[in-house]
Write a protein that binds this DNA or RNA. Structure first.
Lengths: 212, 212
DNA sequence: GCTATTTTCTAACTAGCATTAGCTAGGCTT
DNA sequence: AAGCCTAGCTAATGCTAGTTAGAAAATAGC
């Protein structure tokens, strides 16, 4: 019945089921992103990986478990990409460079690792309360990562002291995540999008400086 | 069978069914917002207004029709609020004032007319393709309203010429709409939120002006 | 090559859903 | 007062979904 995931069993030499499992998750993420959670049936998922619906239960206990893992992976992938993107910068990097790097990494992972992250944004609201609850931990970890960056940037004077970080943070998140709803990437697409966003958010849209 | 809505029949003195119809829509909007479209059953909707599921079919042809109307109302309410908020300004109003008024009205209607607009944001992605298609017309009308404002503001020099409006517009939309996911209004809440957003988007987060 | 374990399939079961058909009771109109 | 329209109810229908149990196939170990 396999209830626990048991991360890589003691000596298993790349089990077959590890692959199938991953394929199922991949397919599920894609379908969830496309059609939403409820509109996606287990038969859809199964047939996308060339299986029958019943077989999925060898790998997962329920449809909800699949949802849960897809959600978690969605955040983890972005989180890791952003962290790596920022840590790759030299110590001397300016706040603007760090911000750009983070923004760029977040956007990139929305479209490259595509399904998991964009599924996350799309279906989070549809998830049963209990699952949403559990999943929120990972979300908050990621949010806190950004929150810390903003805080220290403001402390260092790279962000105006009047700026309300409680508003800034979700503003940026919203701006980034909304891209899933409309943006269809071209070749250089994501970099230029990230540049545009950075420019707007750092400098504002107005030409000169005005009274607050 | 009642296929057409026949907007306010010639001389009917406030039919009972008009009320029930509206109650159903209200309840549906609330539930859609809360639980999503598929997770909301007709029985849920019906019992929320003290009816049985079958009776809903006296007022609507299908669950999808309810969805469609809820979606449409969601945009219309915001659109109207924003238009009114902006038109109420004097001719002499600055771009910043206009922007603030629009932003404020949009945010306010997210939380005041609450369910319709936030349901719209939440469930649009879950709607069947065909409905999404039809509904997109209204959406685009609203988006175009903003697009025109941005264009003329930029033409008038109130927005820096380097700003890419194709990026600016969804950035702002995303920022506003994301508020549904996290913001819980207090008393003065929305006004101060709108002020914060306006400040960030107009002036940017950084203290002085830097090289682009 | 035989056996044990993994992995998948088949085939059903159950529950819940949207939808429908026919009925009922009250009120408006004439 | 008769009959029609309105508004809603009850009960049944058909379908689809998640889930399960056991058989079959594939794979690996000895």
């Amino acid at each position: 019945m396999q209830t626990k995931v048991s991360p890589d069993a003691p000596s298993s030499p790349a089990r077959k089921s590890v692959v199938s499992r991953r394929e199922i998750l991949d397919a599920a993420a894609g379908l969830f992103h496309q059609k939403g959670y409820y509109a996606t049936t287990l038969r859809d998922i199964a047939s996308a990986v060339g299986m029958k619906a019943g077989s999925v239960y060898y790998h997962f206990d329920s449809k909800e478990q699949i949802l849960e893992e897809v959600l978690d992976i969605g955040i983890e992938v972005v989180f890791e990409a952003v962290r790596k993107g920022i840590e790759a910068l030299p110590e001397t990097a300016s706040w603007r460079e760090r911000f750009y790097a983070g923004l760029r990494a977040h956007l990139a992972s929305l479209f490259q690792h595509g399904d998991y992250t964009s599924a996350n944004i799309r279906i989070f609201g549809q998830a049963p309360a209990e699952i949403r609850e559990r999943h929120s931990r990972i979300r908050h970890a990621y949010e806190n990562y950004w929150a810390d960056m903003y805080r220290s940037a403001q402390a260092a004077g790279a962000i105006r002291p009047e700026i309300n970080l409680t508003a800034l943070q979700p503003l940026v998140f919203g701006a980034m995540n909304w891209a899933v709803e409309w943006y269809r990437p071209g070749k250089d697409g994501i970099n230029s999008l990230a540049r545009d966003y950075t420019d707007i958010l750092m400098n504002g849209m107005q030409p000169a400086k005005t009274s607050k």
